[in-house]
Design a binder for these strands. Structure first.
Lengths: 210, 210
DNA sequence: GCTTATGGATACTGATACTATCCATCACAG
DNA sequence: CTGTGATGGATAGTATCAGTATCCATAAGC
């Protein structure tokens, strides 16, 4: 397959494919002569993955690169690979919440984690985001949304178990790693969409005339 | 309160506040003389909301503006305001999935919506994203994640109900609208963080040595 | 009166994700 | 075997976004 055909097969413009090659997201094709390379099914698959991560999950190119490198290295332990996927999904910038708001939120989250019996690395990126979000909701006067955190967590845990069940079906470690990473990232998009659809119909039902 | 104090109160640099004023995210302060304005508690609150949407929920400035304008207008119906929040959360660009993959995904989603008894506008932004995501997961060989869509949807519906319960506590329409919008957007960040934490501990438990 | 802060306007910056152009091959149709 | 178009590789240019920086005339506060 030449680059033009790869482009047609995936609906990605040739210059964009070249850009991904330059950035190291996509491995180079096999060179038959200095300016002739051939691409295979792996390239089609990889390109589809890249586009899904970028377009659907809004993952920045630099993080896509990291994730793919991590998937390609079969020496990296699974939890490290998961960590990369998590970092790709959490914003890097931190919100400056007031100190007491942050300590209160931290306490609530610590309690939540203990209640649920979770074991979470204290440096987990999602932890900081969760704390900031709770602090922000509180400071915006949306305490109602935060008081039932445990119940949300229970619900969330339920379908996270389902997701992990689905992914565990894959036998080999490589397939497992790929499933986990794709599942983590595109799973978020999936859940978010479902949530919005549910919200739309429930809210329409409830506040017909407001 | 002068701009410097507003800046200290919210930890947002003065030039950034000026930028938000320029962009119309933040209403101008009350002018006592041509170059002296005073800001109040509403500005502090508004600024906190802006930062939370931008930093935590990664909503682009232009959409934050839309949302705030919509919240400020008390003539716009609630469902329209919710619609804006939804549009702020769904990517604008569309992924080009192959036609048959898309029709298959569309069929599955249509069935899902019927099963759940949801009523969803056919132009709902989340609908397109859901369809694209399913098509992408399929084309990436992650069918396992898609076969139990109904079960995920049930779980998601459950906590969406909880969220809406929490928000409904607010009596006036203005408060309700604000809660719904903030809840929709920051709620997503909240749920996403919980999901990642749950995933971390469940996966660590399950694949201790892979 | 002197320093600092302010409102308002305009200009500049850095990051991100592409696009465009160029050029020396290379493939292949006629 | 020659002309047309695609290709690989390199370099440069572009659009958008989210701020930062600078300037200036004026105002506040010691």
């Amino acid at each position: 397959m030449r680059i033009g055909e790869l482009s047609k097969a995936t609906d990605v413009p040739v210059p964009t494919i070249k850009y991904y090659l330059r950035e190291g997201l996509l491995p180079a094709g096999e060179l038959s002569s200095p300016n002739q390379a051939s691409y295979g099914e792996t390239h089609v698959r990889r390109l589809r993955l890249i586009r899904a991560l970028i377009e659907l999950a809004q993952v920045p190119v630099a993080k896509v690169k990291e994730i793919l490198e991590s998937l390609d290295s079969d020496t990296e332990p699974l939890h490290e690979q998961i960590g990369r996927a998590h970092r790709a999904l959490t914003p890097t910038r931190r919100l400056a919440a007031s100190d007491d708001a942050r300590t209160a939120a931290t306490a609530q989250v610590t309690e939540l984690i203990a209640n649920r019996g979770w074991s979470v690395h204290p440096e987990a990126p999602a932890l900081a985001t969760l704390i900031d979000t709770i602090a922000a909701l509180r400071s915006l006067g949306q305490d109602n949304l935060v008081t039932h955190l445990d119940t949300y967590a229970e619900s969330v845990e339920r379908f996270t178990n389902l997701e992990i069940d689905a992914v565990t079906a894959n036998p080999t470690r490589d397939q497992l790693a790929e499933s986990v990473v794709i599942g983590t990232i595109l799973g978020e998009t999936l859940i978010a969409s479902l949530r919005l659809l549910a919200q739309e119909s429930i809210s329409a039902e409830r506040w017909k005339n407001r």
